[in-house]
Design a protein around this nucleic acid. Sequence first.
DNA 1: TCCCGTTGGGGAGTGTCACTATCCAACAAG
DNA 2: CTTGTTGGATAGTGACACTCCCCAACGGGA
Lengths: 216, 216
Amino acid sequence: MRLAELSARSGVSTATIKYYLREGLLHPGRRVTATQADYDEGHLRRLRLVRALIQVGRIPVNSAREVLAALQDERMDRHQRLGAATWALPHGPEPDEADPDTDAARRTADELMHRLGWCYGRTSGRAPAGPAYEMLVTAIAALSRLGYPCAAEDLEPYARAAERIAVSDLDLVERYGTPDEQVEAAVALTVLYEPVLLSLRRLAEAEESRRRFVEE
Amino acid sequence: MRLAELSARSGVSTATIKYYLREGLLHPGRRVTATQADYDEGHLRRLRLVRALIQVGRIPVNSAREVLAALQDERMDRHQRLGAATWALPHGPEPDEADPDTDAARRTADELMHRLGWCYGRTSGRAPAGPAYEMLVTAIAALSRLGYPCAAEDLEPYARAAERIAVSDLDLVERYGTPDEQVEAAVALTVLYEPVLLSLRRLAEAEESRRRFVEE
DNA sequence: TCCCGTTGGGGAGTGTCACTATCCAACAAG
DNA sequence: CTTGTTGGATAGTGACACTCCCCAACGGGA
């Protein structure tokens, strides 16, 4: 398959494919002559994944490169690769450590982890905190700065919902045969189910708001 | 309160506050002289909300303006205002209607709405679809293009989790007294709980992955 | 009274990001 | 032989969220 065909079958312009090649998001094709290369189904699949991560998952190109690199790092097992890929995902601004709200937020997050029996945070920290934990702290700090309730007990229902969602996620992942496929599936599902989840939540909120506030 | 004090108490630079004033995200202060204006606690609160929406919620400035406008539109009731604000939230690219995957995705989404008894979509459509619905369709289309399962039955657990989350959300909202406060709370919670939810999901996934894939 | 700092207002500049356009010489297909 | 495509490279684009700088008009302390 040549560049033009890869472009036609993926719906991505040749200019953009060249850009991804330059940025290392896509492996170069097998060189046939000095001015011709051959691409296969693997390139097409990878290209579609890249597009999905960037366009649907709104992941910056640089992060996408790191995520893809983690996916195929032979030195790690399934769990580690998934962790490395998740680690590279975008995660918003770092918490402002000078802010007292951040400190309070960190304590709230720690308490939540403790309640749930998860091994993150300062007190129960078997695992390093990681970007997802920092993201949580930042969000909790912003909420309390605005005066909205987000004590550990307010957050617990959300965490319980997240637990159930994670079980569904991993069930989907385990449908796939090889560990390699599973890791790719896990990352794709982590990223691409985010918009699914957020849109379902917004629809559910509208539904619940109608139920509570509109008399018919 | 003058500009410098507003800046000090919010942690936002005077240049950025001026930018927000220009962009209409913040009401002008009460003019004292030709070169002096007075800001109050309302400005501080609004500024903190704007910052949270933009920095934590990652909402573009233009969308934030629309969201804030919807919040205080006197012509609408609680439910309508919340809907208008949610409507203005960012929602990714429009689905590509030329793509057969989009059509299939739309049918999947419709079936899901039907299973849940929600009044969205083509078949049960009492309400107009809205951006959240389009976001769902785009994400489902991307997933099936990559060959990942997302039939209505695969999505149902996610939707059930979203339902429970929406109930928690509205419970938090109803702690507030006046409808005005409730609407602001609803929007702030919709937006600011998104990173909370996503980070909790990532942590829960790591936890579940460890449970399944790592023998200790 | 003087003066240095601050004010609102406005225009222009900055840096990042994800492309996109253009050019090039080397090929390849009709 | 012509017409078009290829990989490779550089430069340009448009959106975005600030950020900088300039101005004349105040205003509070010495």
